[in-house]
């Protein structure tokens, strides 16, 4: 029995907009075990991004409990949360969020800058290794503006990997990419998942969900479906099936 990485119970999140209170999450509970590849699906406004932000310790729930590796997040200070984000979580954004005019390598190194235990040699080595995993080692000196969207997202993935996180959280990571590039990215995620990294992936595209081992569907802040996926598709195989691109 593998251990529970994420355990949330009765999580709610409310935003106050003037006099109105928007309830983005209305009591969500689930657990994610080590090595799972979970997709969270739902239409726009269903609360999936809010949920992911809470899972990524970027936002705090209004009520309910959230434990990572058995540690209650509510009890941690701002600085301790920063350390959790730094050492345990890799976060990937829809809009890549790379630092402009900064090389791919330095972008990947960024999280390690905030970890004083890592020396500059180790930092560079780890960043190179992470870039190699996403197949961009020969582009390490390129700045984001010199990279395609897919390549930028791969740099972002490398950045999320660089600190050996226990889980990677991706917020619509393929949302800005065409099908082919999206499948390339998904095959990278599947590879990482095979290496044992837990992945939580937010998307609204059903075909992306077929690459994961479990799908949670949210609607209006509630879970309406949570099911294992028995027939996990291989992104690499699907990619091969796509018509070849003309060059």
């Amino acid at each position: 029995m593998s251990k529970e990485i994420i355990k949330i119970e009765d999580l709610t999140r409310e935003f106050t907009m003037g006099a109105e209170t928007v309830r983005a999450l209305r009591g969500v509970s689930f657990t994610v075990k080590e090595g799972e590849f979970v997709t969270i699906m739902g239409s726009s406004g269903s609360g999936k991004s809010t949920l992911l932000n809470i899972l990524g310790c970027l936002d705090n729930p209004t009520s309910g409990t959230y434990k990572i590796d058995g540690v209650e997040m509510k009890d941690l200070s701002k600085n301790q949360l920063a350390t959790i984000r730094n050492e345990k979580i890799g976060f990937i954004f829809q809009s890549y969020n790379l630092l402009a005019r900064t090389s791919a390598l330095e972008n990947v190194e960024l999280p390690l800058f905030y970890n004083s235990k890592v020396s500059s040699e180790v930092r560079r080595e780890s960043a190179l290794k992470a870039l190699k995993m996403v197949g961009l080692e020969e582009r390490m000196d390129h700045t984001p503006s010199q990279l395609s969207g897919g390549q930028q997202q791969r740099v972002a993935i490398a950045r999320s990997l660089v600190n050996n996180p226990v889980m990677i959280l991706a917020d619509e990571a393929t949302g800005n990419l065409d099908t082919r590039t999206a499948y390339e990215i998904m095959s990278i995620f599947q590879e990482l998942n095979e290496q044992g990294i837990t992945i939580v992936f937010v998307t609204h595209e059903p075909d992306i969900a077929t690459f994961s081992s479990r799908t949670i569907v949210l609607k209006d802040g509630n879970i309406i479906r949570d099911q294992k996926n028995d027939k996990v598709q291989s992104a690499a195989y699907e990619l091969a099936k796509l018509p070849k691109q003309d060059h």
Partner: peptide
Amino acid sequence: TKEIGLRMAVGGKGAD
């Protein structure tokens, strides 16, 4: 501001 958000998301503390 966005860059600050990113830096915090990857583990930068307020003091950093």
